[in-house]
Structure formats: C-alpha cells, structure tokens
Amino acid sequence: MSTLLEVSGVSVTFDGFRAINNLSFQIGEAEMRAVIGPNGAGKTTFMDIVTGKTRPDEGRVIWGEKSISLLGMNEARIAQEGIGRKFQKPTVFEEQTVQENLLMALKKPRGWFAVLTYRPSDADLAKVDDLAAQIGLTDQLTRTSGELSHGQKQWLEIGMLLAQEPRLLLVDEPAAGMTPAEREHTTDILVEAAKTRAVVVVEHDMEFVRRLNCKVTVLHEGAVLAEGSLDHVTADQNVIDVYLER
C-alpha cells in the first residue's frame, strides 16, 4: 500500500511547552486509523499541523504520490489538495435543508460568478442522493438542518466533507454526545468511507475504537507511544501506565 501522508520528525513548541515532540506518522491511501491518547497528548495539534493551521518548528509533512510538502501551503490550499477535517462540534448551515447543505458542499468552481449563477444539474442532485444514502439521511433531505438530532448533524457534516471528495478525512471525536445506535451508524459511515480514502479518527471512546477494527496510534507528550491493533496497544505497559489507568 502506497503512503498518502507522511509526517516525519515534526516538533512544535508553544510558549516553552513542547506540544509535538519529534512525531512521525504515516497512513496509506485507503486506510482507517484511530489516534488515541490522554488529554494534552498532542492529538489536536497533530491535526492542526496536517491541515496547515499550525506551522511546526521542524520536520516534514509530505503528501501524495508526488511527495509534495504541505508546510508551505495555507489551509485553503491544503483543503484543495484533498484533506478534509471534521471538528467535534458539527458546523452545518442550520437554516438550509439537508439537500441544500450537501449541494453547497459539492466539489465545484468557487468563484463568485460560479456561485451566483449555480443551478444544480441532474448529476449534482444524483450525487447528493448518493451522499444522503451513504450517511443515512435519505429520508431527511427536505428537512431544515437545524431540526436534526445531534447525531444526524454529525452525519450531515461528514457527508458535506465527503461531497468535497477528500483523499484524507480527519475526524475529531465523532462519537461524543451520541446514543449507542448513533455511534454504531457513525462507525458504519466511517468504515465505508475508509474503503476509498484514508480516514484518521481521534477518539476517547474505546468501544467505538474497537468497532472501527483498525490500526491504532497512541500519542503521549506529543510523540508516538505505541502503534498496532487495539489489543496490542492496550496490553502495552507504557500505554496502561500513562493512559488507561487514568
């Protein structure tokens, strides 16, 4: 499997605190990865570096088969390269319907004229129907997004990211605040998405991580502490000491 993203020897310090410490991480093209670790382990900063929100003090972040560096790019350019990020709190256009949210998110020319004159084609509407089926919101397409449950808004936001056809999806604590049934459906959406792209899930819920059934990277003090299957990392004494016994 070829490497899609490679983070190599990356460090970043904020006000004397080393948030990321010589971190190396890589993920393949169609791969699911869970990233776990205690609060302050560097999970969010890691995602900030990959998406261009934070510039590291040293190290490399290499992307795609052409091995281009992401470090000189701004956030918008990195998103155009095919890196999508979902934050913990869902951000959808609450006044718009589910269908309108998905249509707005489709990968399209974004100039002001293109936006002003945009009318959805049959192909656009078909794509939206397909996305709605992937996220389980087919029967909600005409509903105003503000009326959706917390879990449904999370799925809509994942659908909006998938509409942009990213090659890497970074998802921050998708299971937070969900019912068990919603968590199960979220697992299904992410596992399906990872068949055709890389998906990195930052999560605290071990049951959720177990259901993802993927390789796990454990971060501690800004570095990789352990990596492997969930059973492998949870049996690691270092992981037990710094994370699991808290």
Rank of each mutant, 00 (worst) to 15 (best):
A175T: 02
E182P: 09
G84C: 04
V171Y: 10
A175L: 04
G111A: 06
V98P: 07
F113N: 03
A79Y: 02
I135V: 15
W155F: 15
G151L: 03
E75K: 13
G159M: 03
Q154M: 08
Y118N: 04
A163M: 02
L137Q: 06
L125N: 13
I83R: 13
Q80Y: 09
L137D: 04
Q134C: 10
G111M: 02
G111R: 06
N101P: 11
E173R: 08
Q88Y: 14
A105V: 00
R85T: 03
D139W: 00
I135C: 09
G136E: 01
P166N: 04
I158L: 15
E182V: 08
V171F: 07
L102H: 06
N74K: 11
L168D: 08
E182R: 10
I158E: 02
L156F: 10
P180W: 03
I78L: 10
P174C: 06
G146H: 08
L116R: 12
T144A: 10
E81L: 11
E173P: 13
L137C: 07
A176T: 09
V171W: 06
Q134P: 01
E182K: 13
Q80L: 03
R77H: 14
K153N: 07
M104A: 14
L106R: 09
Q164M: 04
G72H: 10
T138C: 01
R119G: 02
L161G: 03
M104Q: 07
E75F: 01
G136D: 01
Q152A: 04
E95Y: 09
D130I: 00
Q140L: 04
F87W: 15
M73S: 07
I83H: 13
T117M: 14
L170E: 04
V115R: 12
R110Y: 11
A76Y: 12
P120D: 08
K89Q: 13
T97M: 06
